[in-house]
Design a protein around this nucleic acid. Structure first.
Length: 645
DNA sequence: ATAGGGTTAG
């Protein structure tokens, strides 16, 4: 035994500790260090031991290290040791422990330093709490407010608690801001919604690195300006900036929002070609991109290939299956998730409930809802209640939907009533629709979507008085229907069409194609259904109103430019009207095309067009080329050059 | 024997 002790000097014992070390192993190492006399021989080694445990990024070891601080140590802890513990907690599961450690540190009569405060600020940012300003005061007292690391952490903290103006003040006090502080300010601006100011800052930066590019791209993508994000990514490659995993995550998110499968596929190939590490986050983004672009098979292929998965990964797959109509598989995957001991969260249940909803599994949906509350102790949020209302509503169980709303322990929000209103539209229930509308206007007077829905319900039931009175009301309130917008990606380029949009450079061909479609559909027995048109008619010229809907323009464009047999994928911001749905089915059959439509809309994007620029025509030949020869930056550059033509 | 900015799901 004595021999063994000599064989393992304590510094190698410490280097044994990493995040795979179990608590049991840590205890053994601790015992070894104690019995070998390491701590008495070299008192500072106790501090090293505590730090190693804290920095192992393993929560149990961190707790153990934390508790040892309060036993009678062979030597008082050093400032560095306490700092290490604070640092570990700041990015660990309980960041609020940082603050009690800080008090402990003061009670030991230490003076906290810059290190201490950067960690504390990080903790305050992630707690989202009110402690940030207090820490700001404290660090000023200790004279740490001129330290760059502290300054950028302050900006980050104020931004994360929603106080951009404070972040601005900090920034303006920095005499000579560097790359990092500018990036941190840029991010703060973007997160506050002021992406244009962020851009200004980015544009004027004397130098940029990968992180600043990433911050700007992410800023656009988060605000729903995905197309701008992709364009900026193009610029990034063009300028030869180094791209990394984070870049790709944002770019894939943009592709997912735009339904840009070709670009997403290109990014996937780029990742492989450039040996970027397919970490959990990146893998999850890929799953999400593929499933949002309608390619659930490829999404699941990525899912199964991933060795490490977290709850995000599972949620993306479950959600993808649900929204792609694979409810059975979605429920099966959830069972597997449970068997593998992954704890589901609220988002998991949104996916599961949506799966049940589209498949019409009412009873299963009820069970899932109870499982969430009773077994997993997850308090349902508006989203979950919304799914349940939709579940009943779509299944035609309107009474149950209403009862469910009335039994909600939280105040139903606008979207709860709107979901009900939507079911009323599906099942022609005027009376209940009026009731839902009343509730909606009690909460929010100006809801354009709800007005349009109610008007359509009246129109369906030929209650013209109702139609005109809703229209009147909208006019009074100055409400306008949000313009419909559809995007289609063709050979890696996103094209955007608004309702009644004539601005596309190939509009003539589109119009001709619409005529051709019209002719062939008539032969096939299609008759336009005008009952949902009424809303648009007053601003309309005599031309065929229905053919102006944005998805028809987009599909016609797809027919013009896409090779035969290539599927047409459309992403739309508003509900697809009955006629368009019907029309699409006919086109799909008559032209023998697979057509996939997705509804995509986030609250952030509500009043924004899906992008600001369209009409860019890249000249790529076929998707397979993307896989074969185009794995390089040069390829993307080529796209951009072509786009300028 | 410790620092700052960027990345995922509804």
């Amino acid at each position: 035994m004595a021999l063994l002790k000599n064989l393992i000097p304590h510094n190698s014992a410490l280097s044994l500790i990493d995040n795979s070390t179990s608590l049991r192993q840590a205890l053994q190492i601790h015992a070894h260090l104690l019995t070998s006399g390491a701590f008495t021989h070299d008192p500072s080694s106790f501090n090293s031991f505590l730090s190693s445990l804290a920095l192992s990024s393993s929560p149990p070891l961190l707790s153990y290290s934390h508790s040892l601080l309060f036993t009678s140590p062979p030597q008082p802890p050093s400032l560095i040791t306490v700092n290490s513990l604070i640092r570990a907690h700041s990015s660990g599961p309980s960041p609020n422990l940082c603050f009690s450690l800080y008090r402990h540190l003061l009670s030991l009569s230490f003076s906290p330093n810059h290190y201490t405060f950067t960690f504390l600020l990080r903790a305050a940012a992630s707690c989202g709490g009110l402690l940030g300003p207090a820490i700001h005061g404290a660090l000023a007292r200790f004279g740490c407010d001129t330290d760059r690391h502290v300054q950028s952490s302050l900006i980050h903290m104020y931004s994360s608690v929603g106080l951009v103006s404070h972040a601005r003040v900090i920034f303006s006090d920095i005499i000579d801001p560097d790359l990092v502080t500018i990036t941190s300010m840029l991010t703060a601006l973007a997160e506050s919604g002021d992406v244009d100011s962020a851009w200004e800052m980015f544009d004027e930066m004397p130098e940029r690195d990968t992180v600043s590019w990433n911050a700007m791209i992410a800023g656009y993508v988060h605000l729903g300006r995905s197309k701008d994000g992709l364009d900026l990514f193009g610029d990034m490659l063009n300028q030869g900036a180094k791209v990394n995993e984070s870049t790709m995550v944002s770019v894939l998110t943009a592709c997912a929002h735009l339904g840009a499968l070709d670009q997403g596929t290109w990014v996937h190939a780029y990742i492989q070609k450039n040996r970027l590490k397919l970490n959990v986050t990146l893998g999850t983004s890929l799953i999400d991109m593929y499933s949002k672009c309608g390619s659930i098979e490829r999404a699941m292929k990525v899912f199964w290939s991933m060795k490490e998965k977290n709850v995000f990964t599972w949620n993306s797959a479950i959600n993808g299956l649900a929204t792609n109509g694979a409810a059975e598989e979605c429920l099966k995957l959830f069972e597997l998730m449970e068997r593998q001991g992954v704890i589901p969260d609220g988002v998991t249940f949104v996916g599961l409930l949506q799966g049940c909803c589209v498949a019409g599994f009412v009873q299963k949906g009820r069970e899932i809802f109870s499982l969430m509350k009773d077994r997993y102790r997850i308090e349902p949020l508006h989203e979950h209640y919304g799914c349940m209302i939709d579940l009943y509503g779509r299944a035609g169980k309107l009474d149950e939907a209403v009862q469910f709303i009335h039994s909600m322990p939280i105040e139903p929000n606008v979207s709860a009533w709107r979901t009900l209103l939507h079911s009323c539209k599906m099942y022609n229930n005027v009376e209940l629709g009026e009731y839902a509308m009343k509730e909606i206007t009690n909460i929010e007077v100006n809801n354009d979507g709800a007005h349009v829905l109610l008007s359509n319900i009246y129109a369906d039931n030929r209650i013209w008085k109702g139609v005109s009175s809703v229209r009147e009301r909208m006019k009074e309130k100055g409400l306008r229907k949000e313009p419909g917008c559809s995007v289609i990606e063709v050979h890696g380029v996103v094209h955007e069409f608004f309702v009644r949009d004539k601005s596309h450079p190939r509009y003539r061909e589109i119009k001709l194609m619409l005529g051709e479609v019209d002719r062939r559909l008539r032969l096939a027995g299609y008759r336009a259904n005008t009952k949902e048109v009424l809303f648009d008619i007053e601003e309309e010229d005599k031309e065929d109103v229905l053919s102006w809907h944005s998805e028809k323009l987009a599909i016609a464009f797809g027919l013009v430019v896409l090779e035969e047999g290539v599927e047409i994928r459309i992403v739309k911001n508003l509900r697809v009207c009955w006629d368009c749905h019907h029309w699409t089915k006919f086109v799909s059959k008559t032209f023998d095309r697979k057509i996939v439509k997705k509804l995509y809309r986030t609250s952030k994007e509500q009043n924004l067009p899906l992008s600001s620029i369209h009409q860019r025509t890249f000249n790529i030949d076929a998707l397979k080329e993307i896989h074969d020869s185009l794995h390089s930056k040069a390829y993307f550059r080529k796209l951009l050059v072509n786009s300028l033509i």
